[in-house]
């Protein structure tokens, strides 16, 4: 199952990238109170996903040698942008990262289904559902921020 282990590794890696990026946005936009605190909470969810996956990673091994899905690895947000438009762009980047995480969980769940690995399936379903909630928040927050940022932001 070399490719499933690749995807398990990808899930772990992309959740780490997402968690780090949520923290970067939380710190970089610390004066935007709701963004700051919500991003910290959501980073914690991604940490928890990696924790849940840890035992499964041990079982399948985390394979990082396969070339093809490597291209899916996305770089996280090392630093944030400034201002209301900057916040909008950062939220959009987080959304891209979270989308990668979610599709990864979808693929992992399919693999787990095929292997009848109920433990992995449960982890994948749980994490997928919480990633949806991360995406929903990002979407909501972008909708709120967009008009002001695009039209009247100085």
């Amino acid at each position: 199952m070399p490719h499933l282990s690749t995807y398990v590794g990808l899930a772990d890696h992309s959740e780490k990238t997402l968690a780090d990026s949520f923290r970067a946005v939380a710190d970089g936009h610390a004066h935007v109170s709701d963004v700051h605190f919500t991003c910290l909470t959501l980073a914690g969810w991604s940490d928890d996903h990696r924790h849940r996956l840890a035992s499964v990673v041990e079982r399948y091994g985390e394979d990082t040698d396969i070339d093809e899905p490597e291209r899916l690895h996305a770089a996280g947000l090392a630093e944030v942008r400034e201002g209301e438009v900057g916040l909008l762009r950062d939220l959009q980047d987080l959304h891209v990262l979270a989308s990668l995480v979610q599709t990864t969980w979808t693929v992992v769940a399919q693999g787990a289904q095929g292997l009848r690995d109920t433990e992995l399936l449960e982890v994948a379903h749980h994490c997928n559902a919480e990633t949806s909630r991360q995406l929903s928040w990002l979407n909501t927050r972008m909708k709120v921020a967009a008009p002001q940022a695009l039209i009247v932001s100085p």
Partner: peptide, 10 residues
Amino acid sequence: HDLVTGATVT
């Protein structure tokens, strides 16, 4: 809404 994040339900 999501009671934890405030995300709106579609």
